[in-house]
């Protein structure tokens, strides 16, 4: 436990002292700021069935695919390239402590990024005045959405860790993470969109597709609907990926 705590503090410190983290955060906030701004503009012209915050969360796959691989790519692949991961494992710290500390650091950073998004609705509400539209702040959607991102982030970050453990190239790790997350995010929607006529033989895919509809899960959470299925999916997926990462690290050269 001491190794985990020491490594987590070291990882958090390294992450937040690195200019790349701040650049990635700036990119993240720019991306969400633009989406939020256009959503407010759209709502101001025509009444929409969604709030600006809901609109941002519907675009959730975009930062997931563009930003998260940038956060996960350095933690294991970079250390494997430099050889410092092997040196770390010559101490009494176990591979499990190393992997979970790095995972927790990236996950916390990802969650902090999303919490920082709350600044936009807050600023918009302040600037426009609450009398304009009380839904601009939309605290319930904001809280539910961030809670979902924290939950799903367990699986998403662990996928990034697993990809990083398989290569010494941070670039390749980011690409592998991007492909895996893309597959996970869009596969549910794609399978769901299959035409039922003439595709009966693919009917068995409907159920897994229902489990994998990430954006649907986010909308449920943002509406206050908490289903146990996605909770189990993300928690077990995370445990599986982290377990495989530990095995990969223990057997890596």
């Amino acid at each position: 436990m001491r190794s985990f705590r020491v490594l987590l503090l070291h990882e958090l410190r390294s992450t937040w002292l690195s200019w790349t983290t701040w650049a990635t955060w700036a990119l993240f906030l720019s991306l969400l700021g633009i989406i939020h701004w256009y959503a407010i503009l759209a709502c101001s012209r025509t009444p929409m069935p969604w709030t600006p915050t809901e609109a941002v969360f519907r675009w959730f796959p975009l930062p997931l695919l563009c930003i998260l691989p940038l956060l996960t790519m350095r933690s294991l692949a970079e250390e494997r390239r430099a050889g410092t991961l092997g040196a770390l494992l010559t101490t009494p710290a176990s591979a499990l402590a190393v992997v979970t500390a790095k995972f927790t650091s990236v996950w916390l950073t990802w969650v902090i990024f999303w919490i920082s998004f709350a600044i936009f609705p807050a600023v918009a509400a302040q600037a426009l005045g609450a009398s304009t539209d009380p839904r601009i702040l939309d605290g319930v959607t904001l809280g539910g959405g961030i809670a979902f991102i924290a939950l799903s982030g367990l699986l998403h970050v662990s996928i990034g860790m697993l990809c990083g453990s398989r290569t010494r190239s941070p670039g390749l790790a980011a690409l592998m993470t991007f492909i895996c997350l893309l597959g996970l995010t869009v596969s549910g929607g794609l399978l769901d969109a299959l035409p039922s006529d003439g595709w009966e033989w693919l009917g068995w895919l409907k159920e897994p597709a229902d489990h994998l509809r990430t954006v649907g899960h986010l909308e449920d959470f943002a509406s206050g609907i908490i289903d146990s299925q996605p909770v189990v999916l993300y928690l077990t997926g995370c445990a599986l990926c982290l377990g495989l990462t530990v095995l990969a690290i223990e057997t890596a050269d």
């Binding site: 001491r2 050889g83 009494p92």
Partner: peptide
């Protein structure tokens, strides 16, 4: 101490040794 002695480039000597001391118990 392995042959090529890999060290984290972004740490200062004291920071690195303190980290290693803590990890070594």
């Amino acid at each position: 101490m392995p042959e090529n002695n890999p060290l984290p480039e972004d740490l200062r000597i004291r920071e690195y040794l303190e980290l290693r001391a803590r990890l070594k118990g």
